[in-house]
């Protein structure tokens, strides 16, 4: 059997989506995959298939028409996944902020883990971002493996077992761990 967890960190696959960028950051991502910067030495490969990818690189400020596709691609990716917003305009909207057809950044629609700034960003920054994303990916994998605790310990009140307020909210941690 493959040990998927081990290989995921050694070889994360990238999905790239252009949500209305000016191409400036896209060609820098392409330059990253090419010989001089060579992102592939981290085992990264660019795929076109969301179902096989672990890292989602998004460029562009999210236009009105691309937002549905962005969310769709995000939901199609299997857990654990990391989202990197590449370029100023995908972090905040950049120069395109407040233009008619622009939704001001990726994080209005999907959760973003790593922000890479710069207009256009440089390949060095993108590599830094991807390396950071690998750490986050590992951490997310570990968290996924932990069993989820649904209830706190019940308390005794007037010698009656009180189960009120023992349910944990999504993402909430029990103080005991």
């Amino acid at each position: 059997m493959f040990d998927l967890k081990k290989y995921r960190k050694k070889s994360p696959w990238i999905l790239h989506y252009n949500a209305g960028s000016c191409n400036g950051c896209d060609i820098e991502i392409l330059a990253c995959l090419a010989p001089k910067y060579d992102l592939e030495r981290f085992g990264v490969i660019n795929t076109g298939n969301p179902k096989q990818s672990d890292i989602f690189l998004v460029t562009g400020p999210v236009t009105y028409r691309s937002r549905e596709r962005l969310v769709e691609l995000y939901t199609q990716m299997p857990e654990p996944k990391v989202v990197i917003a590449v370029g100023s305009c995908s972090c905040t909207g950049g120069v395109f902020r407040d233009m008619v057809n622009v939704e001001d950044g990726v994080d209005r629609y999907i959760p973003v883990d790593v922000y890479v700034a710069g207009c256009a960003t440089s390949p060095e920054l993108i590599i830094d971002g991807v390396v950071k994303a690998l750490e986050i990916l590992e951490q997310k994998t570990k968290e996924m493996e932990k069993p989820l605790k649904l209830f706190r310990e019940a308390t005794l009140q007037n010698s009656i077992v009180n189960r009120r307020h023992t349910a944990l909210k999504v993402g909430e941690k029990d103080e005991e761990d």
Binding site: N18, T63, R65, D98
Partner: peptide, 15 residues
């Protein structure tokens, strides 16, 4: 081809 329409021409005259 309209997936990346951002409205730059309009912003040039208003913003």
């Amino acid at each position: 081809v309209g997936f990346v329409h951002r409205g730059i021409e309009r912003a040039c005259t208003t913003k």
